[in-house]
Design a binder for these strands. Structure first.
Lengths: 115, 115
DNA sequence: ACGAGATACCTCACCTGTCAAGGTATCTAT
DNA sequence: ATAGATACCTTGACAGGTGAGGTATCTCGT
């Protein structure tokens, strides 16, 4: 079972930043890591991934450089910047706050008798 | 601090259905309940809410009827249908599954050494 | 030698849900 | 009278995700 696009939305950038926090990486690898880690349930489509990279780079949260592979297809590696680390921390916190609220709301736990 | 739209996205329908599971209600009240329950952090904008109602009604997950208020502004009440209850259960389950994965991913916990 | 499949990148047009900004009407309290 | 709350609704714009297409290299089996 795969995850609906609208649930994915809003997490793409956070996930990419999370992975780049660990180490530099490149598109294809990040994509595959996510797919295998979630057994195919969560998948960033290539188009989504590359547009996200562009957004992140424009925001100066990541920077890119071409790998020096002697053989095989060329790879564009991404590094997270200091601004990116800060943004990641903020996004993570924001998500954790939101998560609590969303869980409460989707379960209909609105206390206080209002409704 | 308010929640980003992209985190809201994908939950609107689930939240509305959750509330209607409890009892019939109407737009303004649902909206306010959410706002006060989350102390303003989570807010469905009116336009979002009403388009969601239309979507849900078209899908036959909810039905609407005009309230019989003697005074005050007229209210359009919504009831959840049987199909709506089933859809809600599915959405809730889907979300709970997604939640686990998202949490893992945004924290960068990709085990297995891949990446 | 050749084809299939994996690796690796990229772009464009389209779709869908959210939102800002506007509107209408009624009731209540000052 | 007027402000503010209650209550509904529509429109156009916007942004992120996606399907469908493209390019190029390497490996492996036949």
């Amino acid at each position: 079972m795969s995850i609906a696009s609208d649930l994915i939305r809003g997490h793409t950038e956070t996930i990419i930043l999370a992975l780049l926090t660990r180490s530099d990486s490149y598109g294809y690898r990040i994509n595959k890591a996510i797919r295998t880690a979630t057994k195919g349930a969560y998948e960033l489509k290539e188009a989504t991934l590359y547009t996200a990279f562009r957004r992140l780079e424009e925001a100066d949260y990541i920077r890119s450089y071409w790998g020096s592979e002697e053989s095989g297809a060329r790879r564009r590696y991404y590094t997270i910047t200091e601004a990116g680390r800060i943004a990641y921390a903020r996004l993570l916190e924001e998500w954790q706050r939101a998560n609590v609220l969303i869980n409460r709301l989707v379960e209909g736990n609105i206390e206080g008798g209002d409704l």
